[in-house]
Design a binder for these strands. Sequence first.
DNA 1: TGCTTTGTTTCATTCGCTGCAATTTTGTGC
DNA 2: GCACAAAATTGCAGCGAATGAAACAAAGCA
Lengths: 230, 230
Amino acid sequence: MTTGQGLRERKKERTRQALITAALELFEERGYDETTIAGIAAGADVSTRTFFSYFPSKEEILFADTEERLALAFEVIDGRRPDEQPADVLVRAMSAVFDRAGHFSREFVRAAPVRLRMIFAVPAVQGVALRRLLSAQQRLARRLHAAFPDRLDAVEAAALVGALVGAVTNTMMTVAGESDGIEELLTGDPERFLVELRRAVEIAVRGAAGPGAQPIRRFSRTRPPSHQSR
Amino acid sequence: MTTGQGLRERKKERTRQALITAALELFEERGYDETTIAGIAAGADVSTRTFFSYFPSKEEILFADTEERLALAFEVIDGRRPDEQPADVLVRAMSAVFDRAGHFSREFVRAAPVRLRMIFAVPAVQGVALRRLLSAQQRLARRLHAAFPDRLDAVEAAALVGALVGAVTNTMMTVAGESDGIEELLTGDPERFLVELRRAVEIAVRGAAGPGAQPIRRFSRTRPPSHQSR
DNA sequence: TGCTTTGTTTCATTCGCTGCAATTTTGTGC
DNA sequence: GCACAAAATTGCAGCGAATGAAACAAAGCA
């Protein structure tokens, strides 16, 4: 991806990178809302209109690299060993996405901290982040279902992915939302962060009820005839 | 809430309802993107500017009623019986939000179908929906932590809520995303839908790994020295 | 060297959203 | 009832995001 074929593609890639770089710099420098698309375009030495032929919105430029990371998870799922449990495969897939030991592109290392800060500060970015998250869940579920066609139906796969991703996401937000959470996460050793994630995964895998719980729970058993108040 | 104190408040409430009604009608009639705020305001016989003193954006008008539904879940959590399991309380809370047996305001009955359709069709609405969802998870987790101060720490509560909400949400999206999913969900008997939700809750409560699984899973055990490729 | 394709620019336009000052409407003390 | 304070509403001016169309420049190819 670094070396394109012709001059045309290489130039396009350079423009793309210039836009990303300019945007991240401006976001950090003056803040997200204070950065205009015109400013980003100017920083990359292109016209405002050109920006929109690379990214559909100001928000999306923050997520320029997420697709390839999701692909890591897909790889794990597609390459599952025949004797593995669905939950195990999913845990490995999550690990592939978050683990520092994996391959981080330069793009990711540069963008991730800014992105996280923006997700916590800017509603518009939150919207995009969460939309991507949900779409990723759906795709993971489809993939998982395809990988275990006779052990999981579509809904089970969705529930499984949802439980795992939900636990991890909410844990991540909680940990990162604490004072110093983001800084600790971004600058220092990610160990504590990974420890919490492991706990979250464990809860999701072993069940919210914990080990000594009764086998089955009820959901909306009650159904009185009363309807529609107010 | 139906009867305000003075003329002022009653008029305000009437204007608010007029805006909601006009918006829902227009959304259904010509579609979300085709509906302008100016059009909504005109439908409610107020100025465009006035719209913004009631709702901060076009999206939020679709979620005018969600806060009170979340309050139902809070009630359940706050009023837990002392001997209950956290997971059980959470399941009951979810049930209170989704179950048809509960109290549906007129607002909700009117808005929910349109809202669901828009969530599936309009990215901007997805963004708001998911932002609200995550914020709700955080608040639920805080509340749950407060309800079980010595059985759950903050991160466990977050993971638990995340797992349950994640499973339910993703299941809901999957079921509703099927052809006829939304229609079946909205018009007919919600039974099949609730059945699937119950399965999702069960998976989240009993654990993604299923009953016969090994007790503990690993998460990102591997950590080779290689760092930062590409 | 010309022709085609593709990327870029400029321009105009629509819409979401905000701040501000003027105006109207409502509540209240007299 | 009446005047005055508080609050809601309005119009307007303006910024920025986003899109469409046509002119223009550059790259690839014969």
